[in-house]
Computed example of a mutant assay.
Amino acid sequence: MEEHTGKKNYEVDWNEYLPGVAIDCVIFGYHEKVLKTLILEYKETDFFALPGGFVLKDENLDEAASRVLFERTRLQEISLNQFYTFGSLSRFNPEPMRIVMQKNGLEPTKSHFLLQRFMSTGYYALVDFKEAEPIADFLSDSCQWYDIHDLPSLLWDHEQIIQKALESLRENIDHRAVGLNLLDDEFTMRELRNLYETILGKELNRSGFHRKMVNSGRLNRIGKKNTGKAHRSPYLYRFNT
Rank of each mutant, 00 (worst) to 15 (best):
L195N: 11
A136H: 03
E107G: 00
N215G: 05
Q144H: 08
E2D: 09
G29A: 03
F187L: 04
Q82T: 13
E131A: 13
F239M: 09
G6S: 12
L50V: 03
A22S: 07
R238P: 02
L115S: 09
L40F: 15
R74S: 14
Y123Q: 13
N93W: 04
G52E: 06
H4M: 09
R91N: 08
V55L: 11
N172L: 11
F209C: 10
F86Q: 02
Y235M: 04
S233E: 14
S168N: 13
G179T: 15
T188I: 14
V34L: 08
A132Q: 15
N93E: 06
L80E: 11
Q160E: 12
H31K: 06
L56H: 04
F209K: 12
N226F: 00
Y42S: 05
S207Q: 07
A65E: 07
G122H: 10
V214Q: 14
T37N: 00
L18H: 03
A65T: 05
L200E: 02
V34G: 04
E133P: 07
K57V: 12
Y30R: 00
D24A: 13
R218T: 00
G223R: 09
T37A: 00
V21E: 11
G217Q: 09
A136G: 11
H210T: 14
G53C: 11
D128H: 05
L154F: 07
Y235D: 12
Q144L: 14
K103Q: 01
M1E: 13
I173W: 03
P96C: 11
M213I: 07
A132R: 15
L219M: 13
D46P: 09
R193K: 06
V55W: 05
P19R: 07
K224M: 15
P234K: 03
F118Y: 05
K33R: 13
E63T: 08
M213K: 02
S142A: 12
N104Q: 01
R117V: 02
E131C: 12
K224R: 05
T45L: 13
K224Q: 01
E131N: 06
G122F: 05
G52R: 13
Q144I: 15
Y196E: 09
I161C: 12
L80P: 08
N240Q: 04
A132E: 06
L126I: 08
G6V: 14
T45K: 03
T109A: 07
F118L: 08
L151A: 07
P94W: 10
N104A: 01
E131H: 10
N172P: 04
K8V: 02
S207N: 06
N181F: 07
P134L: 11
N93Q: 05
S207T: 03
E95Y: 09
R211S: 11
R170N: 13
A125G: 05
S216I: 04
I39Y: 04
R74Y: 06
H149D: 05
H4N: 10
M101G: 00
N181C: 09
G208Y: 01
L38S: 10
G223C: 09
I148F: 00
L50F: 11
F86L: 01
V100M: 00
T121A: 15
Y123I: 15
H31Y: 15
L180C: 08
H158L: 05
A64P: 12
M119T: 08
R206I: 07
E131T: 14
F239N: 04
